[in-house]
Amino acid sequence: MTEPLLKVEDLRTYFATEEGVVRAVDGISFEMRRGERRGVVGESGSGKSVTAMSIMGLIEPPAGDIVTGRIVFDGQNLLELSEDEMQSIRGGRIAMIFQDPMTALNPVYTIGDQLMETIVLHQKVSKAEAREIAIQALRDVQIPNAEHRLNDYPHQFSGGMRQRVMIAMGLSCSPDLLIADEPTTALDVTTQAQIMDLMLHLAEDRGTAVMLITHDLGVVAGFCDTVQVMYAGGIVESGTIDDIYHNPQHPYTWGLLGSMTRLDDATQHRLHSISGAPPSLIKLPEGCRFRPRCQFATDICRQVLPVLRPVGNPGQMAACHRSEELDLKALSVDGEVGAAASEVTS
């Protein structure tokens, strides 16, 4: 078997706050193959962005700290690299695009200057060559009049165009891994369709591995090969998109799918709703972190933290004590089911 492109082992990233230690990412392990498109889904605060920031070496000390773990990228543990070495990987072999392109683009420099800066930083090319590469990069993301638009400032671009520029910038150095953190969340649905279509084609053509962070299971279904579902700092389930959507093994994944409204659903049935809200990452519950909201919880769930282990289809993993006996696939998800009301309102 070939080496994975990325291997994350028992990563724990904590933040010191006045209220206590926030265990934002708490012991996650996963791998990505070359060219794999992996979705990272979960509710707000589940640790998706912190996972990405940890890989990019962007966790800021002293508040933020990677307390344990290894992040092995192409055979190299990124956590052992110096800041200089990390800087050359960042934007080079691993690129990242963010939800809000305005925060990543500098308003006082032209689009062209910023693109060329990235290119010169990571490739041994002259300024004139960098300009050519930049123009081509803008063409690749379908910006009309690329050679003129190079001289524009970010505010002269619409939200969708700025996100295209970010993609152009991200892909300009042909990274092996592109991390896209909610790249379309701030955009309208028709613009989202344009951007996802563009990313899919570019990633496929170049064989770029993409980690797509999103809360939208619909976007993942059209773009990714694999998914990992995160909850309260941990991975609760992972597998191929087919495994996750058609054969979920974790009650949270199952509940999430049941809470979604679907465009192709003509019935106005009551949605399944997961009662309550995610726990505080400062005071995590004992045992399974999903337990306070889980309708299937038993005694063992209260005591023992379930580990991510193979269950369901080959290659699929879930972190639930009861996956085998539950047969979630056979259970319908209509009606409000969940923990006792006291738990919701306490």
């Binding site: 619409s158 989202q192 619909g218 976007v219 279904a221 059209g222 959507y245 465009l263």
Partner: peptide, 27 residues
């Protein structure tokens, strides 16, 4: 038509078969 075709459906089988009406440009 364009709006509906742009909305993702959380089902990989359906998504694999869909073709989207991609609008040009911005509002």
């Amino acid at each position: 038509h364009a709006l509906l075709s742009a909305v993702p459906i959380p089902d990989p089988d359906i998504e694999a078969k869909r073709s989207r009406i991609l609008l040009e440009g911005d509002i």
